[in-house]
Amino acid sequence: MEQGTVKWFNAEKGFGFIERENGDDVFVHFSAIQGDGFKSLDEGQAVTFDVEEGQRGPQAANVQKA
């Protein structure tokens, strides 16, 4: 798993971006967030995640709040 920081996340649209430790950004969809209840992330929040190849390039999977 990688570690990163939430760059931004739009809860209304259900997606955002995580900044990886290497400085690259990776797309995150709310469906990739682990846990119960409303799935959202806060700007600046530390997270761990896997990276999978999506239809439009790399995207975060198995996102967990650190």
Rank of each mutant, 00 (worst) to 15 (best):
M1N: 12
M1T: 14
M1W: 09
M1E: 09
M1C: 08
E2K: 10
E2C: 10
E2L: 14
Q3E: 10
Q3F: 14
Q3D: 07
Q3I: 13
G4C: 02
G4I: 01
G4L: 01
G4S: 02
G4H: 01
G4K: 01
T5I: 13
T5A: 07
T5C: 10
T5Q: 10
T5D: 04
T5K: 13
V6G: 01
K7Y: 04
K7M: 04
K7D: 01
K7E: 02
K7Q: 03
K7A: 05
W8P: 00
W8V: 03
W8G: 02
W8H: 04
W8E: 02
W8K: 04
W8C: 06
W8Q: 03
W8F: 08
F9C: 02
F9Q: 01
F9D: 00
F9Y: 10
N10H: 09
N10K: 10
N10V: 05
N10T: 07
A11R: 15
A11N: 10
E12N: 14
E12P: 08
E12M: 14
E12D: 11
E12A: 15
E12C: 13
E12H: 15
K13P: 02
K13Y: 09
G14D: 01
G14Y: 02
G14F: 02
G14V: 02
F15H: 06
F15R: 02
F15G: 02
F15D: 01
F15P: 00
F15C: 05
F15E: 02
F15M: 06
G16D: 00
G16P: 00
G16S: 00
F17I: 07
F17S: 03
I18T: 01
I18W: 01
I18V: 04
I18N: 00
I18C: 02
I18Y: 01
I18H: 00
I18Q: 00
I18M: 03
I18L: 09
E19R: 15
E19F: 15
E19H: 15
E21S: 14
E21Q: 13
E21H: 14
E21A: 14
N22G: 11
N22R: 12
N22V: 13
N22L: 10
G23T: 06
G23C: 07
D24C: 10
D24L: 13
D24T: 15
D25L: 14
D25S: 10
D25K: 09
D25P: 08
D25A: 09
V26D: 00
V26K: 01
F27K: 02
F27L: 04
F27S: 02
H29C: 05
H29T: 04
H29Q: 03
F30D: 02
F30E: 04
F30V: 06
F30A: 06
F30R: 09
S31W: 07
S31E: 04
S31Q: 07
S31M: 07
S31D: 04
A32M: 06
A32K: 08
A32C: 06
A32Q: 08
A32Y: 04
I33N: 02
I33S: 02
I33T: 02
I33L: 07
Q34P: 06
Q34H: 10
Q34I: 13
Q34A: 12
Q34E: 09
Q34Y: 09
Q34F: 09
G35W: 11
G35V: 10
D36K: 13
D36Q: 13
D36Y: 13
G37T: 07
G37P: 06
G37M: 06
F38H: 09
F38M: 07
F38A: 07
F38C: 09
F38Y: 11
K39L: 10
K39Q: 09
S40K: 10
S40P: 04
L41P: 02
L41H: 02
L41W: 04
L41R: 02
L41C: 03
D42G: 10
D42F: 14
D42M: 14
D42K: 15
D42Q: 14
E43Y: 15
E43N: 14
E43M: 14
E43G: 14
E43D: 10
E43V: 15
G44W: 05
G44Q: 05
Q45G: 06
Q45N: 07
Q45E: 13
Q45W: 10
Q45V: 09
A46K: 15
A46H: 15
A46D: 09
V47Q: 00
V47D: 00
V47H: 00
V47C: 05
V47A: 02
V47I: 06
T48M: 11
T48G: 04
T48R: 11
F49Q: 01
F49N: 00
F49E: 00
D50L: 12
D50Y: 14
D50E: 13
D50C: 10
D50A: 11
V51M: 10
E52T: 13
E52V: 15
E53Q: 15
E53D: 11
E53I: 15
G54N: 08
G54R: 09
Q55Y: 15
Q55C: 09
Q55S: 13
R56V: 07
R56K: 11
R56L: 11
R56Y: 15
R56E: 06
R56S: 09
G57W: 05
P58V: 09
P58Y: 11
P58M: 10
P58H: 08
Q59L: 07
Q59P: 01
Q59Y: 15
A60D: 01
A60L: 02
A60S: 04
A60I: 02
A60T: 03
A60Y: 01
A61R: 13
A61Q: 10
A61D: 04
A61P: 02
A61H: 10
V63E: 00
V63M: 02
V63P: 01
V63C: 04
V63W: 00
V63T: 03
Q64D: 06
Q64A: 10
K65Y: 10
A66P: 08
A66W: 12
A66L: 15
